[in-house]
């Protein structure tokens, strides 16, 4: 197993290189660019633009810029933001806790509810409950996430005034956990909608498949309680395919967070990415894109490893 993991990790190194190259070149050819903000400013002189170009290192050919960036990246620096000149890792680091909070709660929410709904609707196949869950999960999978966000803001924010719809805390007030969690509720549910819907479908399908198997019938025949059958036998085996989906959903949440954070003004990494993209802040754009891509690769490896751990029939050599 250890050798398998090491091999997978080694194999992903060239992949990461490929990704950095593509991302770097794409980012540096994005239209607009970092100077766009200066071009509509009072009396920008050609000299000033020239100095800016040199300061930001944009005067060199892109491949030279890439190798300089790579050299620094290997030593743990992703350059400095074009905005205030802070190191990119510090800029991103500021936003990671917010994104982790949103993603973590959304993930926990969708997993918990997905298992609850999935198992129950599998056990009570074709019941009213099963129908409702099925309809809701199709709805959740088909709902454009930003439209859901807008609807939720319209309903809970603008109409009912139940919950705050922006930011992580009430402006001008000292931090309080309750306040923070109240702000979390709407974006958490919106972000979780898709994964929750998808996962409950998977859990349900997986459970249905397992329940029909011989060993479950045997277990039942042995006189085990229904709870024991479900938990000990059915669930364990049903878990195997679901785990893969869960790991991949974590990757989905990363991109879903971009939309959710923008709609709900959640000060996380996704919104930072969107803002930096609009401002042509290349170092931050590249930094986030590379980090996220690496995370996605790691999650993929994790999915395969978990699969192997859970399913004794699979052997990796």
């Amino acid at each position: 197993m250890a050798t398998y993991i090491v091999r997978r990790l080694l194999l992903s190194i060239p992949l990461v290189f490929g990704i950095t190259i593509v991302i770097f070149f794409l980012a540096h050819h994005l239209p607009g660019g970092p100077l766009a903000m200066y071009l509509n400013t009072a009396s920008v002189t050609p000299e000033q633009l020239q100095h800016l170009t040199v300061q930001l290192g944009l005067d060199k050919p892109v491949y030279v810029q890439y190798f300089e960036w790579l050299g620094k990246a290997i030593h743990g620096s992703l350059g400095n933001s074009f905005g205030d000149g802070r190191p990119v890792l510090a800029v991103i680091g500021d936003r990671i806790p917010a994104t982790l909070e949103l993603m973590g709660f959304s993930f926990a929410l969708s997993v918990t509810l997905a298992f609850a709904f999935g198992i129950l609707s599998a056990l009570r196949r074709d019941s009213l409950f099963d129908y409702v869950v099925t309809v809701l999960s199709y709805a959740g999978m088909s709902m454009p996430i930003f439209w859901l966000g807008i609807l939720v803001i319209m309903l809970f924010g603008a109409q009912l005034h139940w919950l705050p719809t922006a930011g992580m805390a009430t402006p001008g007030q000292p931090f309080s956990l309750v306040d923070n969690l109240r702000h979390l509720i709407l974006p958490m549910f919106v972000l979780a909608a898709f994964t929750l819907a998808q996962e409950s479908r998977y859990v349900r399908a997986s459970m249905l498949e397992v329940i029909g198997q011989d060993y479950i019938r045997t277990a039942r025949a042995k006189g085990l309680t229904e709870g024991a059958v479900v938990i000990k036998h059915a669930l364990r085996n049903a878990l195997i395919p679901v785990v893969t989906v869960l790991t991949l959903d974590a990757a989905y949440l990363l991109s879903g967070a971009l939309v959710t954070e923008t709609v709900f003004a959640w000060p996380g990494m996704g919104r930072l990415f969107y803002d930096s993209l609009r401002e042509g802040n290349y170092p931050v754009v590249v930094g986030i894109a590379v980090l996220v891509s690496i995370l996605v690769i790691l999650l993929n490896i994790l999915a395969d490893v978990l699969y192997a751990v859970l399913d004794p029939r699979i052997k990796y050599n």
Binding site: L15, V22, H29, S255, L258, L277, A289
Partner: peptide, 17 residues
Amino acid sequence: RVVDVALSIPSLFLLLL
């Protein structure tokens, strides 16, 4: 590998470009 790389890049990037 081209597919892998393309899948790992945020699609927003490709769309914008």
